[in-house]
Amino acid sequence: MHVSNTINCSGLSTAPTVLRIKQALIGLPDSKLPLSVLVDTACDCARLVSSLGAMAGDVYLASDVRQMPAHLASSRTVSARLTDTIHQAS
């Protein structure tokens, strides 16, 4: 079972973002942490962190792909969608 350590949550409000993060963390080995999460630009990150509780330590939140570590931003899983996001934001 392949589990990615980068996910795109753009367009999602806080509750589905938490769901997506929890789904992504299932089965993700410690060696692949932190989970890198591209959140929506309107995301209330403080609230998101509060909602995640102890899990917040396992995630890296970014609201712009340029804030993500380069090797993660180029990941096949998110690259197509992130390209769209950059395009829409510019």
């Binding site: 996910i7 795109n8 367009g11 999602l12 589905p16 769901l19 997506r20 899983t77």
Partner: peptide, 9 residues
């Protein structure tokens, strides 16, 4: 289809 954000729901 997990690359798509709304797959969560």
């Amino acid at each position: 289809f997990d690359e798509y954000p709304f797959n969560a729901v």
